[in-house]
């Protein structure tokens, strides 16, 4: 099993830095997700690990070996592309076997491995088809098959589920996770979908503007976001990060997850702006002065627009961020009026 380490990796095109001094370690046999908005450098980081781009500065290590100067084929990796990159003129079987043929694996062994891989992914009945005759989900499986048949210790995935519909995406999430555990692969997975990251990852590397915002477990990312950006990126709906100097004092931003706000008879005075009913719960947008706060309440909330309410939350659930640089400030050092 191979851990992946990036040391201060930078990728610059001219003066633009797509990846800017990124360092992290993805544990051997773990599932690391590179998360972030489009253009944040996550895909470039993955391509730097793959060797499809050359680094401008820094080192990339896979399994303890410095692979910075090695071509993709010699890094011991497999990759699944967003577009799947299936060869349109080759059958499913030929696509899956492409790498084994290149590497000159004997035909008998190829046959065995093809059979077991196809069984694993439920592709046995489709082996003679061309990619254009497959559904999106089936193409995705073929791409997976091509990635795992070589038994590379590391698998890289670039937004592999973004072309699938919601239901299929949900099923494939579980399947990919199960497959990764079963085969013990080190996985690096790129996505912009925080739900995908939270549900699949052992470790989330959240990126923004070419830099790492936070590198943590999903639970940690949710419970203790390191920056205001991380706080706003995770959660459905995301955390309220607002400026309420009356509560926090000057120079601080207040972070509150919608699910942690209660509406009742005590606390901060507010008026109801909108109510959005989602079935299992409702999102109530409340106005405190000029600031809007979303609260998530179970069931169907019945508030009239403009109704006066009071908002309360537990001290444990408050997050504070420095207004200047967005960094997290531990609530211990914050004023006691926080629990409204």
């Amino acid at each position: 099993m191979s851990a992946i380490r990036l040391h201060d990796v930078t990728k610059a095109w001219g003066t633009a830095r797509a990846v800017d001094g990124v360092s992290f370690e993805a544990a051997a046999g773990g599932f690391a997700v590179l998360l972030g908005p489009s253009g944040c450098g996550k895909s470039t980081t993955l391509r730097l690990i793959a060797g499809l781009e050359t680094v401008s500065a820094g080192r990339v290590l896979i399994g303890g070996t410095d692979v910075t100067e090695l071509p993709p084929a010699r890094r011991g990796i497999a990759m699944v592309f967003q577009s799947y990159a299936l060869f349109p003129h080759l059958s499913v079987a030929e696509n899956i076997l492409f790498g084994l043929k290149v590497r000159g694996v004997p035909a008998t062994e190829r046959g065995e491995r093809l059979r077991s891989t196809a069984d694993l992914l439920g592709l046995s009945a489709l082996l003679e088809r061309k990619p254009s005759q497959l559904s999106g989900g089936q193409q995705q499986r073929v791409a997976l098959g091509r990635a795992i048949i070589a038994r590379a210790p590391v698998c890289l995935m670039d937004e592999p589920l973004s072309n699938l519909d919601a239901q299929l995406r949900h099923d494939m999430r579980r399947e990919i996770r199960a497959l990764q555990r079963k085969l013990g692969i080190t996985m690096v997975y790129v996505t912009h979908d925080q739900t995908e990251a939270m549900s699949m990852a052992d470790q989330v590397v959240l990126m923004n503007n070419g830099r790492i915002e936070q590198n943590a477990t999903p639970a940690e990312l949710y419970a203790r976001p390191a920056t205001a950006f991380a706080a706003r990126f995770v959660g459905t709906p995301p955390m309220n990060v607002v400026s309420l100097p009356a509560i926090t004092g000057e120079g601080l931003l207040l972070g509150l997850r919608p699910e942690h706000i209660r509406l009742g008879t005590e606390g901060v005075a507010a008026t109801v702006a909108t109510v959005e009913y989602l079935g299992a719960d409702s999102i109530v947008a409340c106005r405190v002065g000029e600031t809007l706060l979303n609260a998530r309440l179970p069931g169907r909330a019945t508030f009239a627009t403009g109704a006066a309410v009071r908002l309360a939350w537990d001290r444990d659930h408050t997050h504070l961020f420095n207004a200047a640089d967005g960094r997290r400030v531990e609530p211990a050092s914050a004023p006691a009026t926080l629990a409204a």
């Binding site: 095109w13 797509a18 489009s38 895909s43 499809l52 781009e53």
Partner: peptide
């Protein structure tokens, strides 16, 4: 988005 270096 990314001006890729063609590995071929």
């Amino acid at each position: 988005m990314i001006s890729a270096r063609n590995p071929m």
